[in-house]
Amino acid sequence: MKITGDQQLIKKMNKTIVLDTIRQKQPLSRADISAAIGLNKATVSSLVAELIDSRLVNEIGPGESSGGRKPTLLLFNKQAGFAIGVDIRVSDLLAVLVDLEGNVIREKSVPLADSEPGSMAEQIRKTVAQLSRRLPESPYGIVGIGIGVPGLVDETSRVVSAPNLGWDNVDLAGALAAELGDNIHIDNEANAGAIGEKLYGAGRDSLNLIYLSIGVGIGSGIIVGGELYRGTSNFSGEVGHMTVAEDGPLCRCGNRGCWETLASEKALVDRAASLWKEDAPSLEEILASAKQGDKDAVELLNEIGSQLGVGLANLVNILNPELIVIGNRLSLAGEVFEDAMLGTIKNRSLSYHRKKTHVAFAKLGIRSTALGAASMPITAFLTDPDVSVQETV
């Protein structure tokens, strides 16, 4: 019998569903899969056989019997391939090599002396090559690369604007494709961070959450109903540029009183430099001083916490999220400014809106964006389990 295009599509979709069911509920048997997704046992067995042949699924032995022959249990082969996630920051980049379940195999942090697009592309190529050396044995090798960029990224993965890097209209994926392949995904770093925390971190059990990336600027990734909200042009989440002080400091965007001019890591460091009349201290130095009881450092961090609370109260009132996750570098000082931040949220948000909203710090620390970026090529790879992927980058 000739298989039509529609039948082939349905078969591919069913195979993807079977694979995803194994990943989410492993270990389980063929009968378990049939019961979970409603496909007959013969169809499930045929699709499982193909997944075993492609080495995406392994048989791991018998499970408990319910009266008849013991069923053979199935396990997703998380080391069938690997992915690399890259978090581009203003002064450095963080790259992680992960297996297909997002477990970090190795990572590398590289300082950036030059953020020019060509130099950045070359540094990414070098870092990917270093992480790819001596991979554990696998049938698919590196399945793809994901990159988080601190700027606006359109639907085609082109970086429209990244002011802190000095980029406008940069085709980073195109610059990398010749050496790193076509499975390259580029997104705003806060979107990637939101995906990372949703899949692997603080947001695993939340369907509606906001991830705040607070570093030189403030960006957000917004998850609604378990899916990333992107907006009409893929540019949602620029919460750092909502006005919180009408006559506040001038922002790099040209506006005054943007939230990030008052509550970002840069705002903290600039304020510390003006108070202490010396070279701008780092976040780590300010935090160390606060932990040693330095009154000025503690007050400064509490001031930043209060300013964070102002913007967070707005987000609570507008979006009524289940969870707000605070990530990127400023989260390192969360233990100091948390009380001031939460107090401001309580005082400025509507009580019914905040009643079920929880605020947490990123469970993945500064890896949120890199891990979220790595998940993007993994998702693309596993959504089409018929695709043959090269074993090397």
Rank of each mutant, 00 (worst) to 15 (best):
R133T: 09
A121Q: 12
M376C: 03
P150D: 11
I142N: 06
S331V: 01
C251P: 04
K356Q: 13
G343K: 06
V18A: 08
G85D: 05
Q79W: 00
G67R: 10
E391A: 07
T379N: 14
K291Q: 15
S206C: 12
K11W: 12
K41E: 09
S157V: 00
I124E: 10
H358I: 09
R133Y: 02
A360T: 13
E137C: 01
R230L: 14
G365S: 10
G201W: 06
Q292G: 02
I105L: 13
G237W: 03
C258D: 09
S213N: 14
V159A: 09
L308S: 01
V90F: 04
I105Y: 05
D247P: 03
L172F: 11
R329F: 00
T357Y: 02
G305C: 11
G118P: 02
I324S: 07
T43R: 13
M341A: 01
V239Y: 11
G372P: 06
L97M: 06
G196N: 12
L93H: 15
Q8F: 09
S213Q: 08
R230Y: 03
N169T: 07
I324W: 05
R158M: 14
V359M: 14
Y200Q: 07
P139Q: 04
R30F: 00
S115I: 10
V310I: 15
A288L: 04
T232M: 11
R256Y: 11
Q24M: 12
D154A: 05
A129M: 07
H241F: 05
V48G: 08
Q24S: 13
V325R: 06
T21N: 09
N302E: 15
G309S: 08
S109H: 05
L152R: 11
S54T: 13
R89P: 00
N191E: 04
L312C: 13
A173E: 11
F381Q: 00
V359G: 04
N164P: 01
L74G: 06
V44R: 14
G61Q: 10
A380V: 01
D294C: 02
G257D: 06
A192D: 01
N14E: 15
G231K: 13
C251M: 03
R134M: 08
L330C: 07
E50Y: 00
L56N: 07
R348S: 12
A340H: 03
K11P: 01
L19Y: 08
G219A: 13
I60V: 13
S236F: 05
A192P: 00
E107Y: 08
V224K: 08
N317W: 04
V110T: 14
V128D: 02
A49S: 15
G231I: 07
L371H: 05
A297F: 01
R271Y: 06
K291D: 09
D182L: 10
D99Q: 06
Q26C: 08
F82N: 03
R125K: 15
D114Q: 05
S306N: 07
P385R: 05
I17S: 13
V325C: 07
V393Q: 06
A245S: 06
Y140K: 09
V224A: 11
F235E: 04
L93A: 02
F76G: 09
G151W: 05
V336H: 00
F381L: 01
S220L: 09
E179R: 10
K198D: 08
K277D: 15
E179D: 15
I222M: 12
V86H: 03
K2I: 13
L332P: 00
Q26M: 15
R133H: 10
I17N: 13
T357Q: 07
S206N: 11
V159P: 09
G248V: 07
Q79T: 12
A290Q: 01
A35T: 14
P163E: 08
